[in-house]
């Protein structure tokens, strides 16, 4: 497998990204345990919550994406990932179905904000105060709905599971590295 990155070797390059998820899928990745050492010998991990570089690299062979697309920032990241990755894997139910982060979709945003920041406040805020309280500036704005990754970018492989078991992640990665497109449903399912 060839790569156009500045990596010092021509080993396949991997990125992992954490959008609107609980980090559980990355925990499952960590659960590869000693296989992580084997993995480190097979690929270069260019970008991930567990490695330093903050900018998404120019080109990556395979990117695993955890989490639903909930905020405008998530959407921006998803587009960058797609433009700079040869192969995108939706990792886990939040990325594949929306899962728990999408449970907010049953209400509209202003009702959600009122529930979280107004109704539960000890002193009911005035209309002026309400504006100041709501998370509408500084933090990335919430999109009207949290959606699965494939509703905003093309996804090449889906690995469902909440989280997908470490063995399933290992199977998918090693199959991919061997040049095969794995059948993820043979090793995981929705929920799990």
């Amino acid at each position: 497998m060839t790569t156009t990155t500045t990596a010092t070797t021509t080993r396949p390059t991997v990125a992992t990204v954490w959008l609107d998820g609980c980090s559980g899928c990355h925990m499952s990745l960590m659960d590869l345990d000693e296989r992580l050492i084997t993995l480190a010998g097979l690929v270069d991990i260019l970008h991930s919550p567990v490695v330093d570089p903050k900018e998404f690299p120019q080109s990556v062979d395979v990117t695993l994406v955890e989490g639903a697309v909930s905020s405008e920032e998530d959407l921006h990241k998803a587009n960058v990932i797609r433009a700079h990755s040869k192969f995108v894997i939706a990792l886990g139910d939040c990325a594949v179905t929306g899962n728990v982060p999408a449970m907010r979709n049953y209400w509209d945003r202003s009702d959600l904000f009122d529930r979280a920041y107004v109704e539960n406040a000890q002193e009911p805020p005035t209309a002026e105060e309400r504006k100041a309280i709501l998370p509408l500036t500084v933090v990335p704005p919430l999109r009207p709905r949290a959606t699965p990754l494939h509703e905003v970018i093309k996804v090449d492989l889906y690995l469902p599971g909440c989280p997908p078991p470490a063995d399933a992640i290992w199977f998918v990665l090693t199959e991919f590295l061997a040049g095969r497109v794995p059948n993820a449903m043979s090793v995981s399912r929705f929920g799990k």
Partner: peptide, 18 residues
């Protein structure tokens, strides 16, 4: 879903309030 190898849903979710 597992038996039919459905790994994602191609239709947009409706997210109705039930």
């Amino acid at each position: 879903a597992t038996k039919l190898e459905i790994d994602h849903v191609r239709f947009p979710y409706r997210f109705p309030r039930m």
